Structure formats: C-alpha cells, structure tokens
Simulated assay, not measured.
Amino acid sequence: MAIGAEEQVRTALAAADVETARPEERAEMLMEIAVGLQIKPKSVDEIRAAIDLYNRALAICPSSHALLEARIRARRATALQAIPEEGSASLELARDGLEAAIPNLREHGSAEELAEAEMNLGLVLQGLSSAGKARIVDAISAYQRALRTFDRAAFPTEYAILQNNLATAFLSIPFTDERSKMREALAVQAFEEGLKVVNVIDHPSEYAMLQNNLGNALQYASSSHSVENNLRAIEAYDEALKVRSRKSAPLEYANTISNKANCLWNLPDDVEDPASGNRLNLAVARKLYAEAREIFASAGEAGKARIVAEALDQIDRETLSVAPLRETNGPMHEAE
C-alpha cells in the first residue's frame, strides 16, 4: 500500500476512534471515508485502502443495524469491482456482498439504493459469466429489476447505462441457437432506447458510449442487410467521435476509430455498385488504424496495438493485390 493511502487509513481510523462515539457511528464514519477514497482514486492502493476501511466498518457495525450493514456491504462491492486482477476472486466477493445486502436494502432502504445494488449485481454477474462462474441471464434479470426504479423520466442517466448494460449482456450470449438474431435485435433496440434519453450536450460520456456500442452491434449483426447496417454504424461512430477526441479521451477515441475503420473495410465505395470495390474506404480505414495503433502503443496497450498492426498489414496486402471486397471479423469490438 502506498504511503499516501496508508496515511489516509491511519487518519480515518483515528477519526473514527472516538470514545464517545457509538459503534454504529464509527462504522458509518469509516464507510464515508472509504467512499471518499473511491472517488477518483490515484492508484489501486487507494481502492484497497477503501476495502480495508469497509471491512473494519463491518467488523464493528452492530447486528441490530441491518440497513447500515447492507450499505457498507454494497459500497464495498463497488470497490471490489474496481480491483484489477487475473482471476475472479474480487468479483465473487462483490457478488456475495451484494446478495447479502439486497434483502436488507429491499426491506429497510430506499428504492434508489436497492436499484443501484441490483445494477451493480448485474455488472458483477456479467463479469463472472465470462469466466463461467455466473449465468448471463441472471445479470439481465438484475438489470431489469433495477429498471423498475431507474426509469427514463426520473433517472435518464441510470436508465441509459442500464440499457447499455442490457444490450451488451444480450450480445455476450453465444450465437448458437435460433434466438440469436432476436437477441441481436433486442441489443440494438436497447442501445437506441438509451439514446432516447441522453444527448451529446448533457450526457456526453453516456451518449458516446451508447453510440459506439450501437455501431458495434449494427456492424457485427448477422443480417442480410450488412451494407445498410454498416452505413448506420458509421453514423453512430461519428456521433461518438463528437465526444471522444484524441486529446480528451485518447483510448476511447482509438477504440472508436478502430471500430469505424473495420466498418469501412467492409463497405464498398459505391453502395449501389458493390462490385466496384472499396479501395477508397480501405485507404481511410488504413489511416484510422495507423492513428489507433500509435495511440495504443503510446498508452502501453500492446495487445490492442498488435491487433491493429495486423489489420494494417492485411489491408496493405489487399491493396497491393487489388483484392475484392470481403467480410472480416475485424480487430476491435469493444463495449465501453
């Protein structure tokens, strides 16, 4: 743990160690200080320090204060979600904490607290599902329960985020049965539903996220209308790029221009005459890939830089051989 985080923990413990304070007051104070550590943490050490404070708060919280205990568990879960790790231990702890907290939040807490916990549970379950340790349908159910409170009228930001989460959950289900196309359609519908309540001025981050992910959903849909979908995807990426710039959000910008490049790679220059090829779109795609590779490399994202470099090499081979238009899975397909 970094010295700064250690000092904050010592300060928090000293502040909470007041003889005249009741245990529940001390527990609540530790929780509030931990929440403060989670806001824009400078390092993972501050997240770990917050988790330590939550654990100490739980240790002294009286069993008679069920709502306070539930709030501490729910907050600790959000900190556990933020821990970068190879395995899934932290996510499993977060799941257990949320599942323990939700019944008490349902009985004693506010509707908003419960909905927030359900939304976070959905995220945790979605993360665990990729490791085979949870069912994606349970994540979808948690998101849908959260939507009972976080409706489009009163909570537009939360509503939009939940629609994005639902869509990415639908898309994460393997396309191995006859319902695959229906899930793709539901994902596109959810992205579009989220975009009905956010705009580029008031909710720029959510707007860009939804537009980027809508573009991905359209681009990779198994549809007989691939050209039409790709044109719509280009429009969505361009909308995302109204927010995501190389200066303000370089990695998000690089992801989006990579997605746009892949879309152009599969789009004929003249949609009315697909047989004429796509050399012009390939040239634009190559330029976008080159910029994305530079950004990824400078940010230390070696894996993404390598994938984009491979796409550049393939484009160069196609351009030299005057290859016909063909389909590709492409290098980028990031939900963010």
Rank of each mutant, 00 (worst) to 15 (best):
A16Y: 01
F150L: 11
D316F: 02
T328F: 11
L210P: 05
V198G: 00
A290N: 10
L162R: 11
L98A: 08
A283K: 12
F170W: 15
A12T: 09
H108S: 08
L147W: 10
N164A: 13
A146D: 13
P331T: 13
S180K: 05
E32N: 14
E327S: 13
F296W: 01
F150A: 08
L58M: 07
L282A: 02
A139W: 05
E272L: 09
R10T: 09
V188P: 05
Y237E: 08
E113R: 04
A160F: 13
S63L: 12
Q189G: 08
S172Y: 06
A302D: 12
L121W: 12
A290W: 00
E86K: 08
L251P: 03
L67M: 05
A236E: 08
L162P: 06
E235A: 12
Y54L: 08
I307S: 08
I234N: 05
V322T: 10
A131L: 03
R326E: 13
R306G: 03
L218C: 02
I315Y: 02
R306E: 14
Y159A: 11
G97E: 11
V284E: 15
C61I: 08
I136C: 05
F296K: 00
Y237I: 03
N199W: 01
A82T: 11
E92C: 06
N259E: 13
A139K: 05
F170P: 03
A153W: 09
N212P: 02
P41I: 06
S205F: 04
L186Y: 08
A208C: 08
L282H: 12
A77V: 13
A302E: 11
K247I: 12
A292D: 06
K196Y: 05
Y237M: 04
A2Q: 12
L13K: 07
L231S: 06
V188N: 03
A16L: 01
E112H: 09
D313V: 06
R317F: 05
Q219E: 13
L91I: 01
L264I: 10
A275I: 07
E24G: 00
V188H: 03
S248H: 13
A323C: 03
G303A: 09
A167W: 01
F150H: 11
R56M: 06
K42Y: 04
S248D: 15
N216F: 03
C263D: 12
E291W: 00
A94Y: 09
L231F: 00
M209Q: 12
G215C: 02
L166D: 07
D238H: 06
A142G: 09
R152A: 15
E294R: 10
E7C: 03
N104H: 13
I3G: 01
A74T: 10
M31D: 11
S129W: 07
R326V: 08
I140V: 15
K181A: 14
I201E: 14
V227Q: 00
Y159M: 06
L114R: 14
H65Q: 11
M31A: 10
